[in-house]
């Protein structure tokens, strides 16, 4: 009879634990799998130390070079917009900060809800734009796999259900909130096994890239 509240408590309780465990096991397994492989010793005389160029690339690769921006402005801009919007909603919305504090014990200041609301709306729109682009652009359409659409769907659902819950557009609210939490949990569960891993591995990849080029005297 009390499905909505039971559903919410299930998503906040057992399901959250399950998602968190699968996420942590999967992610750590993934990361260890990468690092254990290691790199062969490099005997070539380096022009520079790898560390600094590696870390520099971790940062600089966030911004596209001017030529790439000119050739793929839509890709670059929309990619930026939705990533920023998503990260702002994820990390600066007060209830999310409380969640992180509850789990990890760390917290930081948040943003006013209307600001987050605005960014969430922008994120939703830009996500739709990325989907249209993926289906319309010859390269993206050609290289897209089922996984790409699956990941898009879950990311979109996470943001959409969050938006619906915040605006209380689904009744009763425990159902709306429960759906949002469940989507976020599916996202967490999928993360270590899909391209969502890039959330973590992109920084490792960038470092390896920057280190390889940096050692040869090129800031990549």
């Amino acid at each position: 009879m009390s499905q909505a509240m039971d559903f919410l408590l299930w998503t906040k309780g057992p399901m959250f634990t399950i998602a968190m465990v699968i996420f942590a096991v999967g992610l750590l397994a993934r990361l260890v799998e990468i690092f254990v492989l290691g790199r062969a010793t490099n005997y070539a005389e380096p022009r520079a130390n790898e560390w600094l160029p590696g870390f520099r690339t971790v940062l600089t690769r966030t911004v596209a070079d001017p030529g790439t921006f000119e050739r793929a402005p839509f890709n670059v801009v929309v990619g930026w917009v939705w990533h920023i919007g998503f990260l702002m909603a994820l990390l600066l919305f007060i209830p999310h900060i409380e969640l992180i504090k509850g789990v990890l014990g760390i917290s930081w200041p948040g943003l006013a809800n209307p600001v987050i609301d605005f960014f969430t709306a922008v994120t939703l729109l830009s996500l739709v734009a990325t989907l249209v682009h993926r289906m319309a652009h010859p390269v993206k359409r050609h290289i897209s796999t089922v996984e790409d659409y699956l990941v898009w769907t879950i990311v979109f659902l996470v943001v959409l259900t969050g938006y619906l819950a915040y605006h209380r557009l689904v009744s009763p609210y425990p159902l709306a909130l429960g759906m949002h939490i469940l989507c976020a949990e599916i996202f967490l569960i999928m993360l270590p096994f899909t391209k969502l891993t890039h959330i973590f591995t992109a920084f490792i990849a960038r470092w390896y890239n920057g280190a390889a080029f940096g050692r040869k005297g090129v800031q990549s």
Partner: peptide
């Protein structure tokens, strides 16, 4: 296959930017 290769494949999001280069 080494660590960088694994990190690279783990990170690709099929954005298609490489085609533009």
């Amino acid at each position: 296959i080494d660590a960088p290769t694994a990190a690279f494949f783990s990170s690709c999001v099929h954005c298609g930017i490489c085609a533009q280069s």
